[in-house]
Amino acid sequence: MRVSSVVSAVFLFLLGVPLKSFALSCLADGSNSASINETLGTDLAIQADAPDGTIIWESEAKSVPVVCTANKGAGKEDIYFYINPANTSVGQGIRVGIRYNGEAMIRQTTGRWNTGHNSQEGCTLSDCSGWRAKFTLNFSVFIEKYGSTPTTGQATTLKSYRVFQLDGVGGLNKVPDSNLNYILTGIDRIRFVPCSPKLTVTPNTVDFGRLSSNGGQSGQQIITSRFSLNLKRDCTTPYTVNARFTPKTGSVLDGLLVPANNSSVGISLLREENNEKLAYNSWFKLTDMTGASPIKVDLLAQLFWRAKPVLGPFSAAVIIDLFYK
Rank of each mutant, 00 (worst) to 15 (best):
R2Q: 10
R2K: 07
S4L: 10
S8T: 15
G16T: 08
G16D: 15
V17F: 09
L19P: 00
L24Q: 03
A28L: 08
A28P: 01
N32P: 00
A34F: 09
I36P: 02
I36Q: 12
T42Y: 07
A50T: 07
P51C: 03
D52W: 05
W57V: 01
E58A: 06
E60G: 10
A61I: 01
A61K: 07
S63H: 03
V64H: 04
V64K: 07
V67L: 03
T69I: 11
A70R: 05
N71K: 12
N71F: 04
G73N: 11
E77I: 01
I83D: 14
G93R: 04
I98D: 14
Y100G: 05
Y100K: 04
N101G: 02
G102F: 09
E103L: 12
A104E: 12
W113I: 14
N114A: 12
G116Q: 05
H117F: 12
H117D: 07
N118A: 02
S119V: 04
E121C: 00
E121K: 01
C123A: 04
C123E: 09
C123D: 09
C123L: 08
L125Q: 14
S126D: 15
C128I: 05
G130A: 04
R132C: 01
T136S: 10
I143S: 13
Y146M: 11
G147A: 12
S148Q: 14
P150C: 12
T151L: 15
T151G: 15
Q154F: 03
A155D: 02
A155Y: 06
V163L: 10
F164Q: 08
Q165P: 02
Q165M: 13
G171I: 02
L172R: 02
L172C: 03
D177H: 02
L180F: 14
L184C: 05
T185R: 06
I187A: 06
R189G: 02
V193D: 08
C195Y: 12
L199T: 03
V201E: 05
T205L: 12
V206N: 08
D207H: 07
R210C: 01
S212H: 03
S213W: 06
S213L: 13
G215Y: 09
G216E: 15
Q217G: 03
I222W: 11
S225H: 06
S225V: 01
S228L: 00
L231P: 04
K232V: 13
D234W: 02
T236R: 08
T236Q: 10
P238A: 11
V241S: 09
T246G: 00
L253C: 00
G255D: 12
L256E: 13
S263Q: 15
S263W: 05
L269A: 01
E272K: 05
N274F: 01
N275K: 11
E276P: 00
K277V: 13
Y280E: 09
F284E: 09
M289S: 10
M289K: 09
G291F: 01
G291T: 13
S293N: 10
D298S: 01
D298F: 00
Q302N: 13
L303I: 05
F304M: 02
W305C: 04
K308M: 12
P309Q: 11
P309F: 06
P313N: 08
P313E: 09
F314T: 04
S315T: 10
V318P: 09
L322C: 08
